[in-house]
């Protein structure tokens, strides 16, 4: 059950600048994703709606910038970012759980804003800075959100944890002094089944203002 307040972890993001690129057309085409669309996919970027080029269904070559490193790969246009990350590049920190933008286990950062990788096409992520859970610690030094997750035992089975850590990082990146209710709002795009929220919300609250790894 989520609250009615704005969701920070959604694909649309919460900033006004994000909404600019969100056309009616990309929205309608995005819907096909959940139904396991087969065949070609058209990607529009709003500004050039008249010049879109169909690609697929055969694999296309793309380059993804993940945690600062470029990866070249071939994907069918229908492949989601979560599947490309996990199946082709072995970035398995982000998890595939609901596979339709509800639970947040697949959360990654796209150009600094949290996004559901299960409802983003891999080809849509070209030219954007993708940051995954594997990229937020510095060697052995964990990001403050991760450190406080351990301290407050904000994890049980741990399967939702990477998504929550990324959502938590997005909160503290944006707001160095969030209230507890702002923390809860920021986390409401993620779901945990074991019931770790007591530790999760405290961890994110305590990590705010503590910088990065």
């Amino acid at each position: 059950m989520s609250s009615n307040k704005p969701i920070e972890g959604s694909v649309e993001g919460s900033g006004a600048e994000q909404r600019k690129g969100f056309s009616r057309r990309t929205f309608i085409e995005g819907i096909g994703l959940g139904a396991g669309a087969v065949g070609s996919v058209v990607v529009t970027d709003g500004a050039q709606a008249d010049h879109h080029v169909p690609v697929g269904p055969d694999p296309v070559s793309i380059t993804l910038n993940i945690n600062g490193k470029n990866h070249d790969l071939k994907v069918e246009p229908r492949v989601t970012l979560i599947d490309a990350l996990r199946n082709q590049l072995d970035y398995t920190g982000a998890k595939k759980v609901c596979d339709r933008a509800t639970c947040g286990a697949c959360t990654v950062m796209l150009d600094g804003l949290p996004a559901y990788a299960c409802t983003t096409f891999a080809i849509e992520a070209q030219g954007r800075k993708i940051e995954t859970i594997e990229g937020i610690s510095a060697g052995d030094k964990m990001h403050p959100v991760q450190q406080y997750f351990v301290e407050h035992d904000a994890q049980q089975c741990g399967f939702c944890t990477p998504g929550f850590v990324m959502a938590g990082k997005a909160i503290v990146d944006k707001n160095p002094r969030p209230s507890m209710s702002e923390v809860e709002d920021g986390l409401c795009g993620n779901i945990c089944r074991c019931g770790t929220y007591v530790g999760v919300r405290q961890a994110v609250y305590d990590a705010a203002g503590k910088g990065s790894a």
Binding site: T92, E134, S137, M142, Q146, V150, G158
Partner: peptide
């Protein structure tokens, strides 16, 4: 006490069954 496996899980390094990618693996 802190969970012994806490850091591995918080870093996303813990390998679950779903995370196994073996050479030549089929789906």
């Amino acid at each position: 006490h802190d969970r012994v496996d806490g850091p591995e899980k918080a870093r996303g390094d813990a390998k679950y069954s779903y995370d196994r990618n073996l050479s030549g693996m089929l789906f």
